[in-house]
């Protein structure tokens, strides 16, 4: 996990770079260092970094200039400042341009690690919303439909969940692009929308198969050993819970009690409920859908 994170440390004092390297490398982060803003810009034109740690007072190109450049050219990169002069004004400037956090010099390894961890979490949370947005394309009719839903709910307080439910119905899932569109439409930040999507199990960010199979993991189904049927389905479709088969025909999910305990164990395919399933029966039923 940590080794996927690329961090650039910018400081005119080599000792700072070295100590950052020692602390963060041991945690598995990917660290590079450079001694000034100019060099940093050159490096960043070549490579995308997830995080930049930068000093503010540096010769030639100083920290604030670097941060401005990053915001413009590399908006996805998270910024943390390292400063020996944490005066209110400089911090305020930096915060206004948009940094994640700051580390006051001198710092202990614990502080550095802590800040890094939080910064990584922050970019991770943002990442799916920002990055994947470019990948997917949706037909205009779908987007129109989404906009219609948004405008219908726009001025009603607390409408984010119903809007997301309706949009998931339209698209089938809630990819970052859709979340972003909803956020904009409802005048919320993408983070707010994403926090709701990630909290409720009803929402999914992955596309589903043509047929969505849901297995109930309620107590009654558990007691009647639904696990065995679930394992059989996984084996039969060669997918895990939460995945879609290669041919995009089936997706597999688990749910917490469908309230049809009288029929336990229960499997639902799309909207149809099947009761008293067994490992043998599930493959037969799924077979009918192929």
């Amino acid at each position: 996990m940590a080794d996927e994170i690329k961090i650039l440390v910018v400081d005119d004092e080599p000792i700072v770079i070295r100590s950052c390297e020692t602390v963060l490398k041991s945690e598995g982060y990917n660290i590079e260092g450079c001694l000034g803003g100019k060099e940093a810009i050159l490096k960043m034109e070549q490579t995308a970094y997830d995080l930049v740690f930068t000093d503010l007072k540096m010769p030639e190109v100083d920290g604030i200039t670097l941060i401005r450049w990053i915001k413009q050219k590399r908006p996805d990169t998270g910024i943390v400042i390292i400063t020996g002069y944490p005066s209110q004004d400089t911090i305020k400037d930096a915060l206004e341009i948009g940094i994640i956090d700051y580390v006051p010099k001198p710092f202990t390894p614990a502080v550095l690690l802590d800040v890094t961890k939080r910064a990584v979490e922050w970019i991770r949370e943002r990442a799916p919303v920002e990055e994947k947005a470019k990948e997917e394309e949706f037909p205009p009719s779908m987007l129109n439909e989404i906009d219609r839903v948004i405008s219908q709910y726009k001025n009603r307080p607390g409408s984010s969940i119903p809007v997301l439910q309706r949009c998931q119905q339209i698209v089938g899932y809630l990819p970052p692009q859709v979340q972003k569109r909803i956020a904009k439409g409802l005048n919320l930040t993408p983070a707010q929308i994403h926090s709701i999507v990630s909290f409720y199990s009803f929402f999914t960010m992955k596309p589903r198969g043509d047929h969505n199979i849901r297995i109930c993991l309620g107590t009654a189904c558990y007691v009647k050993r639904v696990e065995e049927s679930l394992n059989k389905i996984k084996e039969y479709l060669k997918i895990d819970v939460g995945d879609v088969t290669e041919d995009k025909k089936f997706s597999l999910e688990t749910v917490r009690c469908l309230g049809a305990c009288g029929l336990a164990p229960v499997m639902v395919i799309d909207e149809e409920t099947f009761g008293a399933v067994t490992p043998k029966k599930v493959t037969e039923i799924i077979g009918q859908y192929t």
Partner: peptide
Amino acid sequence: AGAFVCGEETALMRSIEG
């Protein structure tokens, strides 16, 4: 939207608030 904790009254109210 599927969250067990929403059975708790204050959580449920937050959920209605979106």
